[in-house]
Design a protein around this nucleic acid. Sequence first.
DNA 1: CGGAATCCTAACCGATACTG
DNA 2: CAGTATCGGTTAGGATTCCG
Lengths: 141, 141
Amino acid sequence: MATMSAARKRAQAKTEYNAFLAVCPSRRLLDRLSDRWVVLVLCALGGDGTGHPDVATSMRYSELARQLAGVSQKMLTQTLRSLERDGLITRTVTPTVPVTVDYELTDLGLSLYQTTRQLRTWAQDHMDDIQEHRDEYDAAQ
Amino acid sequence: MATMSAARKRAQAKTEYNAFLAVCPSRRLLDRLSDRWVVLVLCALGGDGTGHPDVATSMRYSELARQLAGVSQKMLTQTLRSLERDGLITRTVTPTVPVTVDYELTDLGLSLYQTTRQLRTWAQDHMDDIQEHRDEYDAAQ
DNA sequence: CGGAATCCTAACCGATACTG
DNA sequence: CAGTATCGGTTAGGATTCCG
């Protein structure tokens, strides 16, 4: 097959990646995405918790640190770097004194946010359900 | 408010849980769900990779171990136990010789699978995209 | 303010051996 | 087959200090 449309190539690539395989790049990507801080950072930048979800907001480093209660500087910076490297967020430095740094979702990041948002919502919506099952399970032991 | 319908209580509970708060139970739940093996086990039991997604299949321990390439016995067992405890999967022991153990998604697990499946699909669909951004980022350093 | 660099320990997790 | 139990290495990740 000499010529192949971009859409066709994409479709084939999809079938070639398989996250179940330990050696597949998509598996390593999935491992990175399956990270508590990645999920929470995307949710924060997606607008969760602001009262205006789905309106991608630009947030400063300190705002993120405040919203993600309990995150250390190290983990926050590390997570932000990896998300920037993967093209999921942009990092904008404004040379004020002191310096101001803003983070914002890219279109790619926004598309992933649609899923991470569901994950957070699911956890909050089914917390009671889960707790009941845990109590029941523990009582049976 | 002396009386409150179950639905009303549930609605209020939802607004009370906030996964951004370190002390919130839903935060710890989200942390547990943001785990590579949790995501992959749910995807496997949901039917991903069988060619018949969305048809929740019952799978034996050894089938799971085979499909989740690279998982150790310890992590697989540990993950399955926690999912069973949370009411996301059922564990069925058939007293053959040797014993046969089957795992299957509950309705609750199936509802979460709808999201973990998206996560896996997203990773596979955007792997090329991500890799391009990484190359670009690394080249700029 | 928004980091980088260092140190250090707690946990995760794999490997191995053993069991019903 | 489907685990459990134990040990040990690796690493995630927190606390602290310093910097542009």
